[in-house]
């Protein structure tokens, strides 16, 4: 039984945590791609920047969380989302829009986003330094240990408050996004622009507004993902390229241009990662005893140091087998 609890902790919970993060990142990437037609390489650093804005606000008002009984950083997150959205819109105005209007090739936009990613990285590290930070400034991370009713299970299921908040937020965000895209005028206009930008313009849809909304959604989700990830572990300023690959993999697996696909892709990549680095020997141990097998002590598919290969090979596999992704997205 304990082995199963271990599996739940290491695979189910961890996978869901990292999957939610990837999903939120991938939604942003996929929306930016479908509206602005380029792979946004600055997304990882947008997440980091958003988390640092939260850190800044948390350090400014360290007591705010006590009033509502939630971590201060979580209370500050909505404000950080607003600030980061403005930042994203500003970045678009300053660096992407001029190129877009000059009708450059999509690759040039990708390069521009790399320029932006380096600038964000530089600014964040100049102001906040290069070491890890803790988003709990004046409060502590709460950890829940759930006991299972069975006798054999002496280990407990461990879940932290940030993880619970992450799950709740992800569900709320995805449902809200769903209603926004299918019910609201602007949301439908976004889908229309993604489907056929020329026709959207001809129909009188103001593409500028759509672009702005895209950045707001991407900025908000990036901030949330960055903040909630940092709440769960620690706020590292060097996340950018490490997290970019799984996010892109998630967006492509789900089908580029499909927000729901991005969610599915996020969880696929997240669980694939945790399953790949999970030591299966632990789960097989009871069987080992029963049948007197001689199993090696480590049966992980991929050593933890090579975790980054998992999203890469998922990416390669989907490009070879089904480049449109699960939900038949556009091929980049």
């Amino acid at each position: 039984m304990n082995e199963l609890v271990f599996f739940i902790n290491k695979v189910l919970i961890s996978g869901a945590v990292i999957g939610s993060i990837y999903a939120m990142g991938a939604i942003g990437v996929t929306l930016i791609f479908s509206i602005l037609r380029f792979a946004h390489f600055a997304h990882g650093d947008l997440m980091t920047t958003g988390a640092f804005v939260t850190l800044f606000l948390t350090a400014m008002f360290p007591e705010a969380g006590h009033a509502v009984g939630l971590p201060t950083a979580f209370v500050m997150m909505p404000f950080a989302m607003v600030i980061t959205s403005f930042l994203a819109i500003g970045l678009d105005k300053a660096f992407y829009k001029p190129l877009r209007e000059a009708n450059v090739k999509p690759v040039v936009m990708v390069m521009a986003s790399i320029g932006v990613t380096l600038m964000l990285q530089g600014v964040v590290r100049i102001f906040f330094g290069t070491s890890s930070r803790n988003l709990f400034v004046d409060d502590r991370k709460e950890i829940f240990r759930l006991e299972l009713p069975w006798e054999l299970a002496s280990r407990k299921i461990i879940i932290t408050e940030p993880q619970v908040l992450l799950f709740v937020f992800t569900i709320v965000a995805v449902v809200a996004l769903h209603y926004f895209l299918t019910r609201s005028r602007l949301g439908k206009a976004m889908r229309a622009t993604s489907d056929n930008a020329d026709l959207a313009r001809i129909s009188g849809i103001n593409t500028k507004t759509v672009v702005t909304v895209t950045w707001v959604i991407a900025g908000c989700l990036a901030t949330a993902a960055g903040t909630l990830l940092s709440l769960d572990v620690a706020l590292k300023p060097d996340l950018s390229f490490q997290i970019l690959l799984p996010i892109f993999a998630a967006a492509i697996v789900g089908g580029v241009g499909h927000p729901y696909g991005a969610v599915i892709g996020g969880f696929v990549v997240g669980f694939a990662e945790t399953l790949a680095v999970f030591n299966w020997a632990i789960l097989l141990r009871p069987l080992e005893k029963a049948y007197e097998w001689d199993l090696p002590s480590n049966l992980a598919l991929v050593p933890t140091e090579y975790k980054i290969t998992v999203p890469f090979f998922i990416l390669i596999a989907i490009l070879v087998l089904k480049p449109t992704g699960i939900l038949k997205g556009q091929v980049l």
Partner: peptide, 18 residues
Amino acid sequence: KNVFVSMTVEENLEMGAF
């Protein structure tokens, strides 16, 4: 390319009234 292929007929019409 004069329709939004991924949207329903009614949504297409709504987009006309944007």
